[in-house]
Design a protein around this nucleic acid. Structure first.
Length: 914
DNA sequence: CACCTGACTTGATCGTAATAAT
DNA sequence: ATTATTACGATCAAGTCAGGTG
């Protein structure tokens, strides 16, 4: 394997790779089952095959090379036949369902098999929708189509309805929600937000939560339908992320393929997604219960008879509140429970096996019971080169000082930071000097940092930098290649036979800790990491990576297939924490869990209505804890706040929802809440928010009798909050709301901006939506130093143009009167006909307009970071679908790494709705 | 339950390559 | 061709959350 892999890699990289990459691992689905399942599917459906092939096609060269980069032997079989999605699904479901091999599943006839998958799906998530209890039975008996319908119906309401036509099949929930969500209120609408003050929350968010009903979080059906219709024409086709073909072209190509795609969707795509989501959610409980199966049961059961006071589970209550929903919800829970139980049994076995060498049986993102991989081969990590003394002497008290290489190394770390504002911070200096003194020794001449002058070293550093910069491009290239050669073997891992990129295979070099905000440990020496600090995780049968430093050894070598890390070491700054080496974001493993994340968020869509009703009800609960939970949930939902775990004293003191202090939330009558605090990364969160009057009141109450530094939510912490959320929806945690709100906002905005116009204009619309999300999530960036200068320059240019415009107009006026143009400075306008002048005026105006809008956009975005939400919060399928519908090449939105990361989403149907 | 460990996601920023503007 | 910006990708800090323990 390894050998082969070695060969493959080269082929892989690059664009070609990307395409193929998409499908990489799916095939390799961990469990053999998946493969089998897939196969079955393919068999049953002829249409799919073409699709698959298409996907594979990318690797046009493959033939030559042997295999597409990513894929490998194992995968080949799977790959060849299945569409990625299907595979994934199958993996998920299959693994869980049938612990060991597919045989059981497969056992059924091939035709049955398909249904099986679906059935599984149904059981899990869809189950809610369909009352049927024994999914298996249904599946078996029911046609594939039916199965599909059910599964699909739930998740993709719009698309399904359209493409599938099986509206009836839609779960009650769906319908219900649709009905409820009358308004299309939210965030999305405001999309184009006039320009918000920098930190103003989007209106949607800000809006007061008037009544439960108002919160329409979901988009109105109408909008969905629109989408469908729009997409309809183009939709249908599956988009294969092939190499260079643009979406548009692909779409066109696909035109005829519709049915295939649809089939795909129904059978594979949707279900897969659902399955995965379902599983994930289900799994967790199982896992937790893994040890004792009963436990799992309890957990899941909990949902039902949950709550304290009411005794009625929240979910149930909600249901009550909303009759339609209630039914569906209940069903869901039942199903989940049932499924979980079943799974539990299976899992148990597995778990036990695993437990031998792995302690934790975590929730498996994609695989069966916590197992993340079967075989794992990699080369370990690469270490930074040893320190090379430069011999430049710093000054102490004006005199050069001799330092040993080790001492000099640390001094250099500081010298290199002379231009940062860290060196202005006393904490930084204190920590640095403390650690440095340890290395200097007690009696060293250097006793006072203030007398240290690092500028000689700093100067040297600058010179070195300059030298590098001045190198010829050939030299640079050679250097680069050398480095690549050195690192190449570390860049790849082979997971279950598939070559995958490793994320951070470079061990972090020593340096001074750059904590953010007022971090108590800033400036401390982050010591060099050696092999003896590193624990390697690798497949049992894989060769143990050779330790790159002679005469040293790894700290430990493990073979734990329940985790995804390849190596870790203890963080030298906080020995309690670890630094992990993981696979890259483009890997199948990451992709799978990413997808699950979005599926979970989509699931929230079906519950959000009830959840909002519930917390609204509890704003005035007598039970203080309940009230706090309600208000906290509300804030997390409406403001996209983070959960807010407790932090130690040796960390920067930043807060999230549960750790908000009294002083962070100021009530401004009648019902404005002003938030002002430092969140993650010490990023300031400052917004005024028009809150539900009940929330306003509750917050005032929470503040009573407390000091500014006291916790606003004294009865709450993240584990309590999440425990509560889990009662409302399987797998629900605080962060899911962020994902949900971000993605639903994008989806909503993109669906309603039925854009005409050219591609750049459409891209702009996308950016607007993206920006909206970034504002919701409070993703900021520091304003570039040159921003002001840039703006000034732009203003100047605009003024210049305006001057020209004035001249043109004058000339035009004169020309009309028969006079000759003024002897203007610009000769252009001279001697032009009035038509030509008029034309020029129009052009100039357009130019000015464009510049002004560019400038406005620039000013607007100067402190908003769009990237973070794109990478972490926006379901890529929304983007892919939108691109397909609008014939915008996906490359306009996703760069290379994003394309690789979201390979799993590239075949989203154009009618996909979050 | 409080606390701790562990694993994995999210996040801003930095250095440099790529691209645009002059 | 050179410079100014932008875009990327890498980096590594800082969150979230599950699960175990006593």
């Amino acid at each position: 394997m390894s050998v082969e892999a070695g060969v493959i890699p080269k082929m892989l990289d690059d664009e070609d790779d990307d395409g193929p990459v998409v499908f990489k691992r799916r095939d390799t689905s961990k469990t053999s089952q998946s493969n089998s399942e897939i196969k079955k599917i393919s068999v049953s459906r002829p249409d799919k095959q073409p699709v698959k092939q298409a996907s594979n096609v990318h690797t046009p060269n493959d033939g030559a090379s042997g295999c597409p980069k990513g894929k490998v032997f194992q995968s080949t079989k799977a790959l060849s036949s299945k569409p990625p999605v299907a595979i994934q699904k199958s993996q998920m479901s299959s693994s869980k369902a049938s612990p060991v091999k597919s045989p059981p599943t497969n056992s059924a006839s091939s035709s049955h098999d398909q249904p099986k998958k679906h059935s599984i799906v149904k059981e899990i998530s869809p189950s809610r929708a369909s009352p049927v209890k024994s999914p298996l039975v249904n599946s078996a008996s029911s046609m594939h189509k039916q199965a599909k319908k059910h599964s699909t119906a739930k998740e993709e309401k719009p698309s399904d309805s359209e493409s599938e036509d099986s509206e009836d099949d839609k779960p009650l929930i769906v319908r219900f929600s649709a009905g409820l969500s009358k308004l299309s209120p939210n965030l999305a609408e405001r999309g184009q937000i006039t320009n918000p003050g920098p930190l103003q929350p989007p209106k949607g968010i800000l809006r007061a939560f008037k009544s439960p009903d108002d919160s329409d979080d979901e988009k109105p059906l109408s909008s969905k339908f629109q989408m469908k219709t729009n997409g309809g024409s183009s939709s249908g086709k599956i988009y294969h992320p092939d190499e260079d073909i643009t979406l548009a072209s692909k779409l066109q190509q696909n035109g005829s393929v519709k049915r295939d795609s649809q089939v795909m969707k129904t059978s594979s795509k949707r279900p897969a997604a659902e399955i995965s989501s379902c599983q994930s959610s289900v799994k967790k409980p199982k896992l937790s219960g893994a040890s004792p199966p009963a436990k799992a049961k309890q957990l899941s059961a909990k949902a039902e008879p949950e709550d304290e006071n009411d005794h009625i589970p929240i979910a149930q209550r909600m249901k009550k509140a909303t009759p339609g929903i209630s039914v569906t919800v209940k069903k869901k829970t039942d199903k989940t429970i049932a499924s979980s139980l079943k799974k539990d049994k299976k899992k148990q076995k597995k778990v036990i096996k695993k437990s031998k060498y792995s302690k934790s049986s975590k929730v498996p993102p994609g695989s069966g019971e916590g197992q993340k991989w079967t075989t794992l081969v990699h080369s370990g990590v690469i270490f930074p080169p040893p320190y090379k003394p430069h011999g430049i002497k710093m000054l102490y008290d004006g005199r050069p000082v001799d330092l040993t290489p080790v001492q000099e190394e640390v001094a250099t770390m500081y010298a290199v930071m002379l231009e940062t504002d860290y060196v202005q911070k006393s904490k930084f200096n204190e920590n640095f000097f403390n650690d440095w003194k340890k290395i200097l020794g007690k009696n060293h001449i250097i006793q006072d940092l203030k007398k240290c002058d690092f500028t000689p070293i700093h100067q040297w550093h600058l010179t070195e930098k300059e030298k590098k910069k001045q190198m010829s491009s050939e030299e640079k290239k050679a250097l680069k290649e050398e480095k690549l050669k050195l690192e190449e073997k570390y860049m790849w891992a082979i997971v279950d036979g598939v070559k995958e990129k490793v994320g951070n295979f470079r061990v972090e070099p020593p340096g001074l800790f750059r904590g953010r905000g007022e971090h108590p440990k800033m400036g401390k020496l982050k010591k060099r990491i050696y092999p003896s600090d590193i624990t390697i995780n690798i497949g049992k049968d894989a060769p143990i990576p050779e330790c790159p430093i002679p005469d040293q050894r790894w700290k430990e070598v493990r073979h734990d297939n329940t985790v995804t890390w390849l190596a870790f070491w203890n963080d030298p700054i906080n020995p309690k924490e670890f630094k992990y080496v993981f696979l890259a974001a483009s890997s199948t493993l990451k992709g799978q869990s990413d997808k699950e994340k979005y599926e979970k968020a989509r699931m929230l869509k079906d519950y959000i209505q009830d959840i909002r009703v519930t917390y609204t009800k509890n704003f005035s609960s007598k039970d203080m804890t309940k009230r706090q939970i309600a208000v906290a949930t509300y804030l997390i939902d409406k403001l996209a706040l983070r959960a807010g775990n407790e932090k130690d004293d040796d960390e920067a003191d930043t807060v999230g929802c549960c750790t908000l202090k009294v002083e962070n939330v100021k009530p401004i009558p009648p019902n404005i809440l002003e938030f002002d605090f430092l969140g993650k990364d010490s990023i300031k969160y400052h917004k005024q928010f028009e809150a539900d009057p009940l929330v306003f009141k509750a917050v005032e109450q929470f503040r009573q009798g407390k000091r500014g530094s006291d916790d606003l939510f004294d009865k709450l912490d993240t584990s309590k909050l999440n425990a509560h959320l889990k009662e409302l929806m399987t797998g629900l945690t605080a962060k899911v709301f962020r994902t949900y709100n971000a993605s639903i906002t994008l989806d909503d905005m993109l669906s309603k901006e039925t854009s005409e116009g050219d591609v750049p204009q459409k891209v702009l619309i996308y950016q607007q939506a993206n920006k909206e999300v970034a504002i919701i999530c409070n993703h900021q960036r520091t304003v570039s130093k040159s921003h002001n200068a840039q703006m000034e320059r732009l203003t100047e240019k605009i003024n210049e143009l305006k001057g020209v415009l004035g001249e043109l107009e004058t000339d035009l006026a004169r020309t009309k009167k028969g006079k000759s143009p003024l002897k203007d400075t610009g000769k252009r306008s001279r001697n032009l006909s009035s038509e030509a002048l008029a034309k020029k005026i129009v052009q100039t105006n357009a130019k000015i307009e464009k510049m002004e809008s560019d400038m406005k956009a620039k000013e607007d975005l100067k402190e908003i970071a769009l990237g973070t939400s794109k990478i972490n919060y926006l379901d890529p399928r929304i983007t892919v679908a939108w691109c397909k519908r609008n014939e915008v090449p996906i490359e306009k939105i996703f760069n290379k790494s994003l394309l690789a990361k979201f390979a799993w989403a590239m075949d989203a149907d154009p009618s996909f709705r979050f």
